[in-house]
Nucleic acid binder design. Structure first.
Ligand SMILES: [Zn+2]
Ligand SMILES: [Zn+2]
Ligand SMILES: [Zn+2]
Ligand SMILES: [Zn+2]
Lengths: 136, 136
DNA sequence: TATGCACCCTGTAGCAACTACAGGGTCAAG
DNA sequence: CTTGACCCTGTAGTTGCTACAGGGTGCATA
């Protein structure tokens, strides 16, 4: 499989595939006589793993650890669980933070009654956190 | 006010203040004889506006537009409202996306029963989106 | 045979919004 | 007169890509 085919098979940008190789996330594949990268099924499933994990919001470093783990099938999977749980907690924290933000923004946006910038409650609210009702 | 004092007054990193000046978000202040930046109240409140808007998740470019608007108090404030509303919608979209993610991650994490990596349901789920119940 | 076109290669630079030095200058206190 | 806190400029690093520039390869068609 050449890089374009792998790209289509996994929905990954070609430049991104080369980038993953450069940072050591994907192993360098064999080359054809014309120096084209030549991938097999193992590459495809590894890249799918990476893409899916990225879609789920894991960082490259987390994915690196997860791949190390799955490359070594006899190891205890506790670390995978720890990484995934920590990530879940981060997502929950982010949701909580964005929810505060959303409420505050909704309050701010709701204050605008039109008119000139000098009288705008939105601009006023942005300039001074003391107008806020939440910490954010 | 020297830069360290402005930094403390607004809770902004000194490097960040200089960065904002470099990108034209804050006007270059006067200098002392020793070539130190010397700020006044106008700088302080402009920087507070920037920091607060950043805390609320606005991008630098959005903040630039908002500052332009508030620099020109006779202008209609409709654009401020549009920027803030668009931003609110983005935050809402992000929350929705993260909520899907959170649910999917919770399902994945919940599957791990311990054991070796080869049998780990977490690693399996990360490798294949077909195990997912939501699109994310 | 030429030539067009799709595809591949490397290497580098750009994005957002900072942050972190390196390598220097200034100033007041002890 | 030296120590330490502060300030300066300029550059490079961070994350996770993405976008070229400037070239090579391979196959079909005129
Ligand atoms: Zn308004
Ligand atoms: Zn606030
Ligand atoms: Zn497990
Ligand atoms: Zn999935």
């Amino acid at each position: 499989m050449k890089i374009g085919e792998l790209s289509r098979a996994t929905g990954t940008n070609i430049e991104t595939i080369r980038y993953y190789e450069r940072i050591g996330l994907l192993p360098a594949p064999d080359r054809t006589a014309a120096n084209y990268r030549s991938y097999g099924d193992a590459h495809r499933s590894r890249l799918s793993f990476v893409r899916h994990s990225r879609d789920l919001g894991f960082t490259i470093e987390e994915i690196r650890s997860l791949l190390d783990l799955s490359d070594d099938p006899a190891r205890d999977c506790g670390e995978a669980d720890r990484i995934a749980t920590a990530h879940l907690e981060q997502v929950q924290a982010k949701i909580a933070q964005l929810t505060l933000l959303r409420d505050e923004l909704a309050r701010i946006v709701g204050r605008c009654r039109g008119g000139v910038a000098a009288d705008c409650r939105v601009i006023e609210a942005l300039g001074d956190h003391r107008h806020c009702e939440s910490p954010h």
